[in-house]
Simulated scan of single mutants.
Amino acid sequence: MMQSSPVNQKRAFQIHTFVFVATMIFLAVLNYTLGEPYWVVWPLFGWGIGLIAHWWFVLGPGANPSK
């Protein structure tokens, strides 16, 4: 498997974070407009776990410093 550079990995994480925030804002506004039940917390938690895992392996303790 081909390894990407730390710069590319960091850029991918930044894009992931931007798309996450933009989508969550859109979903929160949509959910607020539609009213109860407030379901937006479920994609927030699910995708948030994925974003935290991405951070963990790119910038956090799980990152490989030897690259």
Rank of each mutant, 00 (worst) to 15 (best):
M1C: 06
M2G: 06
M2T: 13
M2N: 15
Q3S: 14
S4V: 09
S4Y: 12
S4K: 14
S5A: 05
V7I: 06
V7Q: 15
N8D: 06
N8K: 15
Q9C: 12
A12Y: 09
Q14W: 13
I15V: 15
H16A: 13
T17N: 11
T17L: 15
T17H: 05
F18W: 10
F20W: 14
A22E: 07
A22D: 09
M24V: 11
I25G: 02
F26Q: 03
A28Y: 09
L30T: 03
L30K: 04
L30V: 05
N31I: 00
N31L: 05
N31M: 08
Y32G: 11
T33V: 09
T33C: 00
T33F: 08
L34I: 01
G35F: 00
G35D: 02
E36D: 07
E36M: 01
P37M: 08
Y38C: 11
W39I: 08
V40D: 05
V40N: 03
V41Y: 12
P43M: 13
P43D: 10
L44K: 02
L44C: 05
F45H: 03
G46T: 13
G46L: 15
W47V: 12
W47G: 03
L51S: 04
A53W: 02
W55H: 12
W55C: 07
W56Y: 15
W56S: 03
W56N: 05
F57C: 01
V58A: 11
L59V: 01
L59I: 04
L59S: 10
P61R: 15
P61K: 13
G62E: 02
G62F: 00
N64T: 07
P65G: 06
P65K: 00
P65L: 06
K67H: 13
K67Y: 11
K67L: 14
